[in-house]
Design a protein around this nucleic acid. Structure first.
Length: 325
DNA sequence: AACAGGAACAACCGCCTCTCG
DNA sequence: ACGAGAGGCGGTTGTTCCTGT
């Protein structure tokens, strides 16, 4: 007699997530916490919801190109841990395991193969080459390893020092923008409501009021509700912006329309700390990262053996970024 | 401008472990 | 103790986007 099923397989929706679904999911999680999303009014199974949340909507996720340090870290940790993407993601808190996995499969694997081929060619040219990775002397190997460790440490420190510059609202805003960009290609049935969402989203976020004309399409009540909660949610998140940051700093990293969103957020600030404390939502986001996978504490200790080891460890535990000198 | 092929990425699938009743 | 479902993870697939011809 186990638990009741989280969802029956019949009528479960699959495929790409629509902005409306994202909004509903975020508002649900804001309300109920990051547990199993059931009864979300979404025709999605809990697993799909969880995946969507952890990979795309969760606060603090960094999207876009990987920088050199991140690349180095992935390469190093992949070498150390193998394809344990979740474990590797532990050391890149702003990236999801899925992202890292994809990046490895699409970019890094090829890159490394290329390098390896290049190496092999060089080795064949100079037969005397004892410089191949297999034949290097113990001393050389040790030095190389030390260099690698140093690079990994540096990359880890820098990765951890990055401020969390994104939040769920940013993610959804971006999704909406992308969606709008592609809307002509998207299904007709969804385009109306999505347009409504976008316009209302923008209106709300810029503080110009809700949908101006009914002719542009009125947003569904659940979506409107979701958007409303989303903003309070988003402000909750931004209350985690480092205290040392000035308003200008904040504006600098909030792109265009999100600048307006920040305005809305500040009005709701009192809601946010409540939410944060009650739901444990943000803790959960990082908790997931930092609690699920720590068989590597030895490695961590080893990597963090510098003077500020304690601080860095604390950071790892809390998931809160800060500026390092 | 049209097409083909490759690249990138979001999402699903299936397996394993954990947790709950 | 046991069975069923949840949760987590890595591998894979399908779709979209981009680039070269």
């Amino acid at each position: 007699m186990g638990r009741p099923p989280c969802c029956d397989k019949i009528g479960v929706k699959k495929g790409p997530w629509m902005p409306e679904e994202d909004i509903i999911l975020v508002s649900y999680i804001q309300e109920h916490g990051p547990g199993v999303p059931t009864n979300t009014r979404l025709l999605r199974c809990s697993k799909s919801c969880r995946l969507r949340w952890t990979n795309y909507l969760r606060p603090g996720i960094k999207r876009g190109n990987f920088n050199e340090h991140e690349e180095n870290m992935i390469i190093h940790f992949q070498g150390l841990l193998g394809n344990r993407w979740a474990a590797i993601a532990t050391y890149l808190p702003q990236r999801t395991d899925n992202d890292i996995k994809n990046y490895w499969n699409t970019h890094l694997q090829k890159k490394l193969k290329k390098l390896q081929r290049h190496d092999d060619e060089n080795n064949q040219k100079g037969k005397s080459a004892k410089s191949s990775s297999q034949s290097i002397s113990g001393g050389q190997w040790e030095r190389r390893l030390q260099t690698d460790i140093h690079t990994a440490k540096k990359a880890l420190s820098e990765a951890l020092s990055l401020n969390q510059k994104t939040n769920s609202a940013d993610n959804i805003s971006r999704l909406l923008q992308n969606w709008m960009k592609n809307s002509p290609k998207s299904s007709q049935s969804m385009s109306n409501s999505a347009t409504a969402s976008q316009s209302s989203f923008n209106n709300l976020s810029t503080g110009t009021g809700s949908s101006s004309s009914p002719s542009e399409g009125t947003m569904d009540a659940p979506i409107q509700e979701g958007l409303n909660s989303l903003f309070s949610f988003s402000s909750s998140y931004n209350s985690d912006v480092p205290q040392s940051m000035s308003a200008d700093d904040v504006d600098a990293f909030i792109p265009d329309q999100n600048a307006g969103m920040l305005q809305v957020e500040s009005n709701n600030k009192h809601n946010l700390s409540n939410f944060k404390n009650e739901s444990g939502f943000f803790q959960e986001g990082s908790k997931q990262i930092f609690e699920t996978e720590l068989p590597l504490t030895l490695l961590e200790d080893w990597l963090f053996d510098d003077s500020n080891a304690q601080t860095q460890k604390e950071l790892m535990r809390t998931g809160i970024g800060m500026e390092w000198p």
